[in-house]
Design a protein around this nucleic acid. Structure first.
Length: 345
DNA sequence: AATGCGGGGAG
DNA sequence: CTCCCAGCATT
């Protein structure tokens, strides 16, 4: 631990800054545990601007945890569609049912929160601190980066998890721990950014090892990146003359779990030119569209060939018809929305 | 400790 | 193009 840093001064400075410069965010209007929990789930690996409209829509449709617990899973998936990391949606619903079954009140204890589906170390600490005023220490990407820079940890964050947590706990004030955590997240988002940090305007500049080094951006080092393989696949757009087309729900786990999709075969390595209609859901006069869909996932890039044909009058087993005005609410992923848009011209 | 898991915005 | 976002679950 670096003795040149005074932990108690960090919290005081950060809170004073927060009182003047806090970001205005929709989930900060009330310390309701349901709202705090909902916002934290939506914000996992998601920007504030990306999560905000989803938060508003969730709150409009399900004002409290009992309402969310009573909703069908399909509606929760629809409300989540487009945001990504869809295991959050299933866990959100499961957690709501757990809370509602237990009387509707969220536990205030960090360990009990941690046991809820979709609630990990960060989210449990965040809810405990923000919603219940406990002196917990949530550590998100922003806070890990700020702590690394304050203490001068140059290794990648993953290599210093223990040290970062220990240091962050020494900074956490006994009161206003929730505001303190949010102050660090705001500072991390607007000042202590991953690239080109604005140290001159940072309230924590004094005593920061990274700022004193002259190259704060080097703290912490980036993790080693991995190559992103290419995969190819086919999607089949079988439409009726009225515009309705066949779709199905993906398995509840794994990639795009429980979202809706156009039928198609397994995605595999290879060339898109070799992708044919052999995976078609039924025999038809399939026409291959000239365009293609490109989509970047975390671990691979997908190129999708699209085939169109006239659909039968009745939907085959395990498929449903989706009307054009139902596309937005049906629960399609971002990838499938792109494919559908291309197929519809 | 490593890996799988979306989508979008910024540089 | 790369990086990274108010991480979690699984192995």
């Amino acid at each position: 631990m670096n003795a040149s840093i005074a932990p108690s001064r960090v919290a005081a400075k950060a809170l004073a800054w927060f009182d003047r410069h806090a970001r205005v965010l929709p989930w900060r209007d009330a310390p309701d545990p349901y709202r705090v929990w909902l916002s934290e789930i939506l914000l996992q690996q998601t920007t504030t601007t990306g999560a905000a409209p989803y938060y508003a829509e969730f709150l409009r449709r399900w004002p409290d945890v009992a309402a969310l617990a009573a909703a069908p899973m399909e509606e929760v998936m629809s409300a989540f569609a487009g945001l990504g990391y869809y295991s959050r949606a299933r866990n959100l619903h499961a957690c709501a049912k757990t809370i509602a079954a237990g009387g509707g009140a969220f536990p205030a204890d960090e360990a009990a929160l941690r046991a809820l589906p979709g609630v990990g170390p960060y989210t449990a600490a965040a809810i405990a601190a923000i919603a219940f005023g406990q002196p917990a220490t949530p550590i998100d990407g922003n806070i890990a980066r700020i702590v690394s820079r304050l203490a001068g940890f140059s290794a990648p964050i993953a290599a210093n998890r223990r040290e970062i947590e220990a240091f962050a706990k020494t900074l956490t004030p006994p009161r206003r721990a929730g505001d303190f955590a949010q102050s660090l997240m705001d500072i991390g988002a607007t000042i202590c950014r991953p690239r080109s940090p604005a140290c001159a305007t940072c309230p924590l500049h004094e005593g920061c090892v990274a700022a004193a080094s002259g190259d704060p951006e080097a703290f912490p080092a980036r993790a080693q990146k991995k190559p992103r393989p290419q995969k190819v696949g086919a999607a089949f757009f079988a439409a009726r003359p009225n515009g309705a087309f066949l779709a199905r729900r993906r398995p509840p786990r794994g990639l795009l779990g429980a979202t809706m999709e156009l039928p198609g075969g397994e995605w595999r390595a290879g060339d898109l030119a070799d992708v044919g209609a052999q995976d078609a859901p039924f025999a038809a006069a399939w026409t291959r569209l000239p365009g293609r869909v490109e989509h970047v996932f975390t671990h691979f890039t997908l190129r999708l060939a699209l085939f169109c044909a006239e659909a039968p009058g009745a939907a085959p087993e395990s498929m449903v018809y989706v009307a054009p005005d139902e596309i937005e609410s049906a629960g399609f992923s971002g990838l499938m929305r792109k494919a559908i848009a291309l197929a519809r011209g």
